[in-house]
Amino acid sequence: MTKSLLRVVNLKKHFPVERGMLSRLSGWVKAVDGVSFSIDAGETLGLVGESGCGKTTLGRTILRLLEPTAGEIFFEETKLNELSPEELRQFRARMQVIFQDPYSSLNPRMTAGSIVGEPLAVHRRAETKGKREEMVGELFEKVGLARHHKNRYPHEFSGGMRQRIGIARALALKPKFIVCDEPVSALDVSIQAQIINLLQELQEELSLAYLFISHDLRVVAHMSNRIAVMYLGRLVEVAVKEELFQNPFHPYTKILLEAIPEPGVIKKQKTGLPGEIQSSLNSPSGCSFHPRCPLAKEICSREEEPQLQEKEKNHFVACHLR
């Protein structure tokens, strides 16, 4: 455990819900509610879940882009919670983020070159301006862009190329860990594969660790070493990829796996999962999945929320029935 690059312990992020003129507190949205996991150097942890399950909030909270409500985050044994704003600002060089939407993630009024060069300038990574330009050029080539693209504005690029600029920006400070927040979901199928390959090449070359967030199990399966399944702010199953696919424990994981539409594999007349994802505003008593769970028993609504427990070696499940 001591060797982990990133370790998160019982992390919580609750958002207040305010109502009315005088902003009276009417409840909490428990977007992230007691999540613990660790990521080793050079490893990819996949995080899957449906929209609204809190995966983006989790990604932002572990980078302290959102202040955690409770819990601890350790990065190379530095406790992120305790860093002062200025220390944190310096520390940010080691962990980065890549976003889903290639259109809103780049400042429309800056050139591609200045977007990638800005962190180098702010963190004084180059002695001279010429050297900085050189570093930007190298970053452009590393992500598959031409050097002369530096002077163009974001709106002149296609989605896939914009995503490459975002990746170059994230790599500029030579981080060890990157949160990839649905980095290919907004891209076309033929462009998706290019970006996935690029992310893998970069990982091998720079021994990066990824937290790879996606709703698409196929993409997560391709990218990850281990996979964590998230439902309503909690992790319900964490296991090594092969283990998860061959031997899923949690009913939600099973349903997710069955719901993947495989091209060419005709699985007609599946009914899917009854009900819709609950609002995390009023989570039900007991296991938060029990209203939709096909196997739900009395114990699931009566008992406390099940905790993540190791059922087999390195295979963690949060379910009363297992």
């Binding site: 296609s158 896939g160 190329m161 076309d188 199928v189 033929s190 462009i191 998706q192 594969a193 290019q194 996935i196 390959n197 893998q200 090449e201 199990l217 196929r218 993409v219 399966a221 391709h222 990218m223 092969e242 696919f245 796996l257 993947i260 495989e262 091209p263 060419g264």
Partner: peptide
């Protein structure tokens, strides 16, 4: 063919995806 190949498959290993090069 390129589209079919560029979709990641579960259990397909970690090798590179045969992507279609270039832009739309």
């Amino acid at each position: 063919l390129g589209l079919l190949n560029s979709i990641p498959k579960i259990g397909g290993g970690e090798k590179r995806l045969p992507a279609i090069p270039g832009q739309l």
